[in-house]
């Protein structure tokens, strides 16, 4: 899968790094002092790198757990995010990561124990319940067989108070290790979903039916399962497309059984949009119906509001209002 693995000096002796390298005996291992030397360099082309991304194995130091951006929550008093990985194996056309990073290489931070300590510390410092989001800069489960991330963090969260939750957000169907263990009531597995008609925007992502099947299996095993309709993408005949989509989703996943549902419009920070439009020059996705407001690019309100209202109403036919959250 990887021709090249860049190995950061600080991570080179870590047992998890050694385990990762052993998975790719034929890869060329390139040492680097700091992962940023490779990942953050100027003069890189995200699209060209996406053809054959390399793996960067590194250790994360400082800022391991951050406050989640406003509008990124599912009902907890406190919201945080952390990233054991940067970038994603998938190549979703609308994904903001390609606007955020210069490089398409996948970075895996192997010092899970430091993340554990930082999470414990943050969980104890404030009042009220807390949620830690793990899928902001990556897909939480897509590389689970390689990283063992969920296995490690679910174990850790299972020992924390029930008021401290972990969200694993994914487009993958890598649920094998979760099914092998007892469900953890404070670990929410959240599936990002898009209508099958828009699957061409998500190359390499498992089909909607496979993701729904994975979510159903987790539900049946007692795992808290969420679904994320974020972003809502405009398309021809959007209400018909999304209407059928919601019917399909909630036929497989009873809305009342879901932990949470969130819905949000397609939106990008202005700088990210500019970079993504350059990378995908000529793609109507980054032009049609969009406008800039407050350094954010999103659909014009005459397009965004009706679709969001339609989606909200359709979802509320299946899901209790208190479990539906707006992502903004």
């Amino acid at each position: 899968m990887f021709d090249f693995v860049y190995l950061e000096e600080a991570a080179s002796d870590h047992p998890r790094a050694c385990a990762l390298l052993s998975r790719y005996p034929d890869a060329r291992v390139v040492p680097c002092e700091r992962f940023g030397e490779v990942f953050n360099r100027r003069a890189q082309n995200f699209r060209l790198q996406k053809r054959r991304p390399a793996l960067i194995v590194a250790a994360k130091h400082g800022n391991l757990v951050l406050d989640a951006p406003p509008g990124h929550g599912i009902g907890h008093a406190r919201n945080y995010y952390f990233s054991h990985m940067l970038n994603c194996v998938y190549d979703c056309r609308y994904c903001f990561l390609q606007g955020m990073y210069r490089s398409a290489h996948l970075v895996v931070f192997v010092n899970f124990e430091d993340f554990h300590a930082a999470i414990r510390e943050r969980s104890e410092e404030g009042e009220g319940d807390a949620c830690f989001f793990s899928g902001y800069d990556c897909d939480s489960l897509a590389l689970e067989p390689l990283t063992g991330f969920a296995e490690s963090f679910v174990e850790m969260f299972a020992a924390l108070p029930a008021s401290v939750c972990l969200e694993l957000r994914t487009k993958s169907v890598q649920i094998g290790r979760l099914l092998e263990r007892d469900a953890a009531s404070n670990c929410i597995v959240a599936f990002s979903l898009l209508p099958a008609e828009l699957a061409s925007l998500e190359p390499g992502v498992p089909s909607l039916s496979r993701r729904l099947d994975a979510a159903r299996r987790l539900l049946e095993r007692g795992w808290p399962v969420g679904v994320r309709f974020d972003p809502l993408i405009h398309c021809d005949d959007a209400e018909r497309v999304y209407g059928r989509f919601f019917d399909t989703v909630f036929r497989t996943l009873p809305g009342a059984a879901l932990h949470s549902v969130s819905v949000g419009p397609f939106r990008l920070p202005l700088d990210f949009h500019r970079r993504m439009e350059e990378l995908h020059s000529g793609d109507a996705l980054f032009v049609r119906g969009l406008e800039e407001r407050d350094r954010t690019v999103s659909y014009r309100s005459d397009l965004a509001e009706p679709l969001l209202a339609f989606a909200t109403e359709a979802i509320l036919e299946h899901v209790p209002r208190e479990r539906l959250f707006a992502a903004t």
Partner: peptide, 9 residues
């Protein structure tokens, strides 16, 4: 240090 990037084998 500089790192040339390979987009194919």
């Amino acid at each position: 240090a500089f790192y040339p990037v390979f987009t194919s084998t």
